[in-house]
Computed example of a mutant assay.
Amino acid sequence: MPAIWYKIAIVAIWVGGVTLTAELLHRFTSTDPEKIRKVVHIGTGQVILLAWWLQIPAWVGISASILASAVTLLSYKFPILPGINSVGRKSLGTFFYALSIGILTAWFWPLQQPQYAALGILVMTWGDGLAALIGQGFGKHPYKVWDSQKSWEGSLTMALVSYIVSSVIFLGVEGNIWQTWVIPIPIAIIATALEAFSKLGIDNITVPLGSAALGFFLGQFLLG
């Protein structure tokens, strides 16, 4: 078997494991559906790291994104993924999530700068995922943006986690230089704003694309 298929198998096993865990939690426990959704949200996002570390070709990521996007669209009409889409609110977030991975792969893999694709996806998965959990569990200071209720605790979590994720990626790629600690500041601010001004799950595409684009352009300007 060619090496590429082993790499694809590793990614497929990871995604399958995360999805299976969500379905088991949905079927056999009383876990809050929103928490189950965040398990998938955070867990599946780590495939971008696997794709980066395993040097999986862009066509694989793009093809997987197209397939996942199609499945998620069908799942809104048919009970394909009840553990993921049973949160009781209208949202295309899962579809936008899958789509964003394909767009960022198509953008940054050919440039041989996959770190920016990873930055965008991980800011979304960890930042948005933990912001929702903290906001719902500990949010005592709510505010409204359009018809969506947020909390200052959740938004602060989003900003802090976005900064940490971005810093870790720049530290791993560029080393301990001043840009590593400065570039993540505007990324965290923009990511938090995009997450706050979201509707129908659109933050699952605006946050990763906005974070990755800002990181890339600032990197080109400040890192050369």
Score class of each variant (00 low, 15 high):
198 S>R: 08
65 S>K: 07
183 I>E: 01
118 A>I: 09
32 D>I: 10
187 I>H: 10
65 S>C: 11
111 L>Y: 00
104 L>D: 04
79 P>V: 10
166 S>M: 08
137 G>V: 05
222 L>F: 15
172 G>I: 04
40 V>E: 01
196 A>N: 11
119 L>D: 11
200 L>R: 14
107 W>G: 00
40 V>L: 00
168 V>R: 03
98 A>H: 04
172 G>R: 04
136 Q>H: 12
162 S>C: 09
169 I>R: 12
15 V>D: 00
160 L>F: 10
219 G>Q: 08
148 S>C: 08
67 L>T: 13
129 G>L: 04
38 K>H: 08
164 I>L: 15
62 I>R: 02
76 Y>H: 14
97 Y>I: 02
60 V>W: 07
186 P>H: 10
2 P>E: 12
14 W>A: 02
10 I>G: 05
70 A>N: 03
163 Y>L: 09
221 F>G: 00
181 W>E: 01
126 W>N: 07
16 G>E: 03
30 S>N: 14
17 G>V: 13
68 A>N: 04
10 I>K: 06
113 Q>M: 12
148 S>K: 13
131 A>K: 03
112 Q>P: 01
189 I>Q: 04
180 T>E: 12
184 P>Y: 15
215 G>F: 12
209 L>H: 07
217 F>S: 07
177 I>F: 09
90 K>P: 00
127 G>A: 09
25 L>P: 03
90 K>C: 00
144 K>E: 13
200 L>F: 15
209 L>R: 12
121 I>E: 03
36 I>Y: 08
199 K>C: 11
41 H>F: 14
105 T>Y: 03
205 I>H: 09
179 Q>M: 14
174 E>M: 14
89 R>L: 15
176 N>M: 14
153 E>D: 05
89 R>K: 15
93 G>S: 05
122 L>C: 07
123 V>H: 07
153 E>C: 03
19 T>F: 11
186 P>R: 03
210 G>N: 01
105 T>A: 11
36 I>C: 01
55 Q>R: 12
98 A>W: 11
11 V>G: 01
134 I>F: 07
169 I>K: 08
24 L>K: 06
73 L>A: 08
184 P>V: 10
147 D>Q: 12
57 P>M: 06
64 A>D: 06
134 I>T: 06
148 S>H: 12
213 A>D: 03
16 G>F: 04
136 Q>G: 07
142 P>E: 03
6 Y>I: 15
51 A>D: 10
221 F>C: 01
